[in-house]
Amino acid sequence: MLVLYNFDEIIDRRDTGSLKWHYSDDTIPLWVADMDFKAAQPILDTIEQVAQHGVLGYTKPTAALYESIIEWHGSRYDLRLDKQNILFSPGVVPSLALMMNIFTEVGAAVLVNDPIYTPFMTKVEQNSRKLVTSALKEVEGQYHLDLADIEAKIVEHEVKLYLLCNPHNPGGRVWTRDELEALLSICKKHNVAIVSDEIHQDLTLSGHTFTPFLTLAEGYAHKVVSLTSMTKTFNIAGIKGSMIFAKDEALIKKISQQQHLNDEYELNLFAYTVMQSAYEEGGEWLEQAFAYIETNIDLTLRFLEEHLPDIKVMRPEASYLIWLDCSAYAQDDQTLYDTLRDAEVELSAGIKYGAEGHLKMRLNVACPKALLIEGLNRIHAAFSDVVKES
């Protein structure tokens, strides 16, 4: 039976331990990548059934769970997986750290793009690797890989590992097959391993096509790993769980051995059961949620064009995160952030995503329209005051 979800419902998340809603004032949080929508009913039912069973003991992935993962990725992305290609991990970020030990030694160079999701940079440095960055090129309001710069940096620094974010966070690009093939060609030429964070894959917006990197890796599978999760897709980040995909038998064995050394190869009971429920029964919720999110993206772009045309907006090709160039309204990053905080609206500061995030902000629109509109009005009021003072 079709369930119609009410994404206009405002659910009070204050005083629940919510990271997003931790404020003591009336701040509207439009920052961390966390939707303000109730999870799909089948997921909630699954959690209730597990709790009502009453025995919450040790658990392991079932054959049905593996099949749900294989079916989801095969039917949607033509990514052909077998059980032996799949490992579980508590999260994509721990897996990024794990990959340092799989593909590099201490002191080795690891290449990432700039801007990029913050842990790409911090995990490289925290694991005593050399961080090398290649700035993305902005062309006609969208980011593009600077392939010439990427190759030059690989050669100059003897890069051993490239961490790719596809779809890209924070810019929202879904890299095309041609772009990925060109990147693969460069990495193969210089024997560079590729780890592709694909956690936003299921959030690809209308008119764009996501290409899993592993579908291109034939002949180079011993150097390619993809990381993904159901948590962003179904707004269940509080239930930790993710997957590592690799096609090469020796590589998957090496990853598994390293996971056992770190004791990071198991998920909890709720993560396993919720993952299966999401992949088997969550598609209807996801379709409705994304129709709602796309209207919020359109609403936001119209609002900014009408009221704050000096903000340069990068329309996302995936996710519910919008990258904003606010350089018309501030000269330094702290002032920009404080201006919005003083207006009791919270966005993610762009500078946290690298030097290319200077005077940029990341806006999350995955919330009820009433909250979004109020947040946008506060942004408008904050920047209107700046304009009047200048």
Rank of each mutant, 00 (worst) to 15 (best):
Y5Q: 08
I11H: 10
D12I: 03
D15T: 05
T16E: 07
Y23N: 12
T27M: 06
P29Y: 14
P29K: 09
D34R: 15
M35D: 15
D36G: 15
A40L: 12
Q41D: 15
P42C: 06
L44W: 00
L44K: 05
T46C: 13
H53R: 12
H53T: 02
Y58A: 14
A63F: 06
H73L: 12
G74N: 13
Y77Q: 09
L81R: 05
F88Q: 01
V92L: 11
V93G: 01
P94C: 13
M100V: 01
I102R: 08
G107N: 06
L111G: 10
N113W: 00
I116F: 02
T122V: 11
T133Y: 10
V139D: 04
V139L: 10
Q142D: 06
Y143S: 01
L145T: 08
L147I: 14
A152I: 03
A152N: 10
K153F: 00
H157A: 03
E158L: 07
V159F: 03
V159Y: 04
L164V: 03
C165P: 00
N166D: 13
N166R: 11
N169W: 08
P170W: 04
P170I: 08
G171T: 13
R173P: 00
T176H: 10
R177L: 13
D178S: 14
S185F: 06
C187W: 06
H190M: 00
V195G: 08
D197L: 10
L203T: 15
T204W: 07
T209H: 15
P212D: 14
Y220M: 01
S229P: 00
S229D: 06
G241Q: 08
S242R: 09
M243T: 08
M243A: 04
I244F: 10
A246K: 14
S256M: 02
L261M: 11
E266S: 06
L267Y: 07
N268D: 14
A271S: 13
Q276T: 11
Y279I: 09
E280H: 12
W285V: 12
I293T: 08
L301E: 10
L301I: 04
R302W: 02
D310E: 14
V313T: 04
W323Q: 00
V345I: 08
S348K: 01
I351N: 01
Y353G: 03
E356H: 05
L359Q: 05
L359R: 10
N364R: 07
P368Q: 04
P368N: 06
G375T: 12
L376W: 04
R378D: 08
F383R: 03
D385L: 05
